[in-house]
Design a protein around this nucleic acid. Structure first.
Length: 257
DNA sequence: ATGGTTGCTTAGCAA
């Protein structure tokens, strides 16, 4: 199973690019974030023609998540496990050939200490509780998406510049580690230990050509799956050319048992 | 010190 995750920053704006990428890479499962697309506008037909079924949870203008897959996605769920009514479309989950796929778009948090930041930290706590519960029903779990956290200094182009800033603060990194403690493994780091591997570059200041980025997207896998992870990487070329998303896709490949 | 860019929606917010 080859799975990719991409913050597409508007599905409608990026639909052509998405279809080209799908045709080229042929991933089995693709998780999308920031579709910015209400459910009635979701391009089910063109994705179906490309060979993908889809489950999606969107809202107008902001957020929005979807999972595309080459086979049926069972038991779709579009919220965290608790009773909290979350107006922001940030999670969708489905089961692909026995593996529970959880596609997430974590809150950005705006600024450390802001109300949005508190919501972010609390959202991670709820996500952790939700995945912990899921472990009762599934052995193989993937949690992937835009975490809006650079987990370690090696995930940051200039760690001193970013020290304590949004996406790099200690409490955000602790929240990310909380997921790793479930345990879930950060698959990119099974295969690549170096710095300079990023998934997001600001649109401003020539950040991409200078590779001034952060690695804030991840494919996390439960232990049994992580042991079968044979490759992982970033589709950096998707950040090039005209009208790219500000994120590049991240992917992981798992052997069958 | 502050500006720099994009998307959605049309002035201003979110990222």
């Amino acid at each position: 199973m080859k799975i990719a995750s991409w913050n597409i920053n508007s599905l409608r704006k990026r639909q052509g690019r998405l279809l080209e990428w799908l045709a080229m890479k042929k991933y089995d499962v693709v998780c999308l974030q920031e579709t910015k697309c209400s459910d009635d506008q979701f391009p089910e037909m063109s994705l179906s023609a490309a060979g993908y079924r889809a489950i999606f949870h969107g809202e107008k203008s902001y957020n929005g998540v979807a999972i595309l897959a080459r086979d049926e996605l069972h038991d779709p769920r579009a919220s965290l496990c608790d009773e909290v009514i979350d107006e922001q479309a940030r999670l969708i989950a489905g089961t692909f050939r026995g593996t529970r796929i959880v596609c997430i778009y974590a809150p950005n948090g705006q600024a450390v200490g802001s109300p949005a930041f508190k919501y972010k930290i609390e959202w991670f706590r709820r996500l952790r509780d939700c995945v912990a519960r899921m472990k009762g029903d599934f052995r193989d779990i993937v949690v992937c998406g835009d975490f809006n956290v650079a987990p370690e200094d090696r995930d940051v182009h200039d760690p001193e510049l970013w020290r304590g800033a949004i996406m790099c603060s200690e409490s955000e990194r602790a929240a990310f580690r909380g997921l790793e403690e479930l345990p879930l493994r950060d698959t990119l780091r099974i295969h690549h230990r170096e710095t300079g591997l990023f998934t997001w570059w600001d649109y401003r200041m020539l950040a991409f050509p200078k590779n001034r980025g952060l690695r804030i997207d991840a494919v996390l896998a439960s232990e049994s799956l992580a042991q079968r992870c044979v490759a992982a990487g970033i589709d950096r070329e998707m950040r090039k050319g005209s009208e790219p998303s500000d994120h590049a896709p991240i992917w992981a490949e798992f052997n069958a048992e």
